[in-house]
Simulated assay, not measured.
Amino acid sequence: MRIIDMHCDTLWKLTDPGKNGDLMENDCSIDIPAMQKAGTVVQLFACFTDVKDYRNKGGYDAAYRHVHEMMDYLRKQQECYSEDLALAYSWHDVKRNNLAGRISAMMTVEEGGVLNGHMERLEELYQYGIRLMTPMWNYENCIGYPNSRDKTIMYQGLKPFGKEVITRMGELGMIVDVSHASDGTFKDILFLAKGPVVATHSNCRELAEHPRNLTDEMIGDLANTGGIAGLNLYGPFLGTKKESKIEEMTAHILHMLNEGGSEFPAIGTDFDGFDGMTRMEIAHPDELEKLWEALKQKGVSEAQLDKIWYRNAKRVLKGMAV
């Protein structure tokens, strides 16, 4: 079993003030031993910021500085555990790391508001190694509008600066992540994007009525561009408020296959990006084999499962610029 996990928030957790542990040993969902046991080939590590945490400390400018702190933290972790973990900026790097028996760590940014209207920051992030960006989180920002239960927000899309950002990301070869986008922003991104577009950690709205999830129309449109969606293990996005159930994970994967085709579903756990679960049937990457077996019981072939766990994401990551 090989895994590419399109999204986790472990860097955010480990760089919290007073947080104990590191990538080798911690009380998070993601650590090196669990990834090794799971067969993780690539883990995409999000540099996530919540601007509310910086409201009295400089806002998005301070959040941008913290993104750099998280990137620096991952670099130092890689130096400490260089026999087990290596950074990757292209699929060529992934292949080299895999041959050496190392897990590839790719850096992403979740919350493009940290650009705060400065296009040069996008260039800086790319030069520093960011290969995927989620343009917004749960707030309106300089790029556009987020998911919302307010339809007047949900129908709004990219702002003028946001259109420039999406265009430039395509020129750089950065992957655009439509997770957290409003329906209007999603449509604008698909219209403008010249490179890979994915939903790194999003589920199916038909099965769980939440604005963070994708409608069947969105699944079809994204699949038609060659995009993928990574299954998110957060209970409310699966269908149960405080529980993360394998039965519901299975239903979402099967729905993605039905609506998006065999090349569409992937894994995007969102590990360490949520709290409040009273029960998680899969709490660490090495437990994803339970979902594999559940899907096999539903008649999904091992060849298809390998696509979901690995090959579909591999296809997208190979499309990045070197």
Rank of each mutant, 00 (worst) to 15 (best):
T167G: 10
F161W: 08
L132I: 05
N138Y: 07
I166P: 01
K159E: 09
I143G: 07
P160W: 12
T152L: 04
N147H: 13
P160H: 10
V165H: 05
N147W: 01
R168Y: 14
S148Q: 07
I153S: 04
I166L: 13
V165P: 13
M169W: 11
N147M: 08
I153N: 03
C142S: 14
M133H: 01
L132M: 15
I143E: 09
L132V: 02
T134K: 04
N141K: 02
E140Q: 06
M133V: 15
G162S: 11
L158K: 13
M154Y: 15
G162E: 10
K151I: 05
R168E: 15
N147D: 09
T167L: 03
Y145M: 14
E164P: 03
Y155D: 04
T152I: 05
G170R: 07
I153W: 01
G162I: 14
G170Q: 09
G144N: 06
K151N: 10
S148H: 03
C142L: 03
G144T: 05
V165C: 10
M154R: 15
W137I: 00
S148E: 07
D150N: 15
N138V: 02
G170V: 08
N147K: 01
P135F: 02
M154V: 00
L158T: 09
T134A: 06
D150I: 10
C142V: 15
C142K: 09
K163E: 15
G144A: 08
S148C: 13
M169V: 08
M136R: 01
Q156N: 11
Y145D: 01
G170C: 09
M136D: 03
N141C: 08
N141W: 01
M169R: 12
M136K: 00
I166D: 13
N147P: 00
Y145R: 14
C142T: 14
E140L: 03
P146I: 13
P160Q: 07
C142I: 11
F161G: 02
V165Y: 05
N138F: 03
